[in-house]
Write a protein that binds this DNA or RNA. Structure first.
Length: 493
RNA sequence: GUCCCCAUCGUCUAGCCAGGUCCAGGACACCGGCCUUUCACGCCGGCAGCACCGGUUCAAAUCCGGUUGGGGACGCCA
């Protein structure tokens, strides 16, 4: 009988959720979904200085946007500080830990010296063997102390099997007697985290590879506390194009989940992209529905090598990793229109060009129009930039379109009004009728139809490119087309 | 400095554990062509990689050792 899987995602609320954190959350969530396990959200807010309520809200919002749901929580780690302290006390009593009276200044000095002498930076164990009398004396003198875990000495090592990286061995001698409680009585993350995981019965710790070096220490804590250690699965890290770990500090908004929401990403497309960063299936599939991803997911598919988040800051063509955009594009163009409708709506609202009728009497038209123009778009914001003319009469004319497709042909100044009249005179305004009128006119004038077609497109949509013009005209509608063509004459002034 | 991890096209990666079927497959990006009123979509084609050296073997991208390169950890941060 396999026990139920319990995983957790423990962000520290010191800023927004960034893609590294999102990736960790996604992998944990996927694993829980896959195994029918439980996913706990725990806010590690014990660093009071840097934690903020605002940050917590932002993180929750980003997770919700991504569609990552949790079964328990969010718990605040700070609520359990008493338990953490009690655990430290227990370790002290059982002889697994000891009080250290070394001052921060002393330690800093020693570390600095060691750095200079290119020696290991480990704690030298000054207080490890203090006699009970010495300890009592220092305490009586009111000397503050930290609590350190007592690492076994005289050979031996910690060995564990990481699900991704395989067997990892760390010699005791390479582990220092690390601090688990500050001199002000506050427990440290390494302790709190282990205590919380024990209490929450976490079965699998899935986290970034930067936690790999900490793992032997945590295993020692579990052992000292007499609790079984969970299984560990470390994930490769996400690096930037300069191969540095991505961070809020150096990359700012570009690595924030909310940035992708604002820039027109479909949440699932983003999850799909993130899942592919450092994970794959042997059949090289890339597009997964939610159900397919859960079905295909396996911790074994996590790659050991770090992956690069290929954002090219200076490339005007891509505002982020081209692969991320291409996946978003795929979903944008292939999902049933109804599924992307809410996201388009959101963008129109944000741009102030939303018309409530788009979801009532004009809904059919709205869906058809989205469907018509989406094959050229990459993100939902394109609907309010490139596609603005479909939804609003207040749209800009691309200078290139103006120059190349309107001003270049003086004749359009006379032809536009005639075209407007003729198109307006059509009784049933259909694609075929619109095409007939325009082609006949071109023939009459003895010019290429393309001149009229491209000129009309420029005037009616403001763009040099777009769907087949006759479809465009139907989408924009007869009256507006005529109106826009008449107005276009003013471009020649 | 010490310890740990990693190494296939520009990027994400399959293949590696059980060596031959791989003169290395897919995707994105890029280039060319077809289609077309424009731009896309779509279709067809192309460019491009096993870091290096040695060993084991009839045979190595795959196993072993080393070198180089990269990343991470080493806090009274999480």
């Amino acid at each position: 009988m396999a026990q139920q899987v319990i995983v957790r995602f423990p962000p520290s609320p010191t800023g927004y959720l960034h893609i590294g954190g999102a990736r960790t959350a996604i992998f944990n969530w996927l694993f829980a979904q896959k195994t029918g396990g439980k996913f706990i959200l725990r806010i590690e807010d014990t660093d009071v200085e840097r934690s903020s309520e605002e940050s917590i809200l932002g993180i929750l919002e980003s997770l919700k946007w991504l569609g990552i749901t949790w079964d328990e929580g969010p718990y605040s780690q700070s609520r359990f500080i008493k338990e953490h302290v009690a655990a430290a006390q227990k370790l002290l009593e059982s002889g697994h830990a000891y009080k250290c009276f070394c001052t921060k200044e002393d330690l800093d000095r020693k570390r600095e010296e060691a750095r200079k002498n290119k020696a290991p930076l480990q704690y030298d164990g000054t207080c490890r063997n203090l006699t009970p009398e010495e300890i009592a004396k220092k305490e009586a003198a009111g000397m503050p102390y930290t609590i350190r875990l007592k690492i076994p000495r005289g050979g031996g090592s910690v060995i564990f099997e990481d699900i991704v990286y395989g067997f990892i061995e760390k010699k005791y001698e390479d582990i220092e007697d690390f601090v688990i409680v500050r001199s002000n009585g506050q427990p440290l993350y390494i302790l709190s985290n282990a205590v919380d995981d024990i209490r929450d019965r976490i079965t699998h710790v899935i986290r970034g590879q930067d936690g790999l070096a900490n793992t032997p220490k945590q295993i020692l804590i579990y052992k000292a506390l007499g609790a079984p250690a969970p299984k560990f699965a470390h994930m490769s890290l996400t690096l930037d194009t300069k191969k540095a770990k991505i961070s809020k500090r150096t990359h700012g908004e570009l690595v924030a989940v909310h940035f992708y929401k604002e820039h027109g990403f479909l949440p699932w497309a983003f999850v799909n992209y993130l899942a592919l960063l450092g994970w794959s299936t042997s059949d090289s599939r890339e597009i997964f529905s939610r159900e397919e991803l859960i079905e295909a997911f396996s911790l074994k598919g996590i790659s050991r090598a770090n992956a690069i988040f290929d954002v090219r800051k200076d490339d005007p063509k891509f505002f982020t990793d081209p692969k991320a955009i291409s996946i978003n594009t795929h979903y944008l163009r292939n999902l049933p229109v109804e599924e992307i409708e809410p996201y388009v709506t959101e963008q129109l609202e944000k741009a102030g060009i939303w018309d409530p009728e788009f979801q009532s009497i004009k809904r059919d038209w709205f869906l058809r129009t989205i469907d018509l123009i989406r094959s050229r778009y990459h993100v939902t914001t394109d609907f309010v930039t490139l596609g603005r003319a479909y939804f609003s009469d207040d749209y800009p004319i691309d200078p290139k379109a103006l120059k190349k497709n309107i001003l270049k042909h003086e004749g359009l100044k006379e032809w536009f009004p005639i075209l407007a009249d003729r198109l307006q005179a059509v009784e049933t305004f259909t694609v075929d009728e619109a095409e007939r009128v325009i082609r006949e006119m071109a023939e009459e004038l003895g010019i290429k139809a393309g001149i009229l077609i491209n000129g009309i497109r420029a005037a009616v949509t403001g763009q040099v490119k777009g769907p087949g013009l006759f479809d465009v005209l139907i989408a924009v509608r007869q009256g507006r087309v005529a109106e826009r063509l008449r107005k276009a004459v003013t471009f020649f002034n």
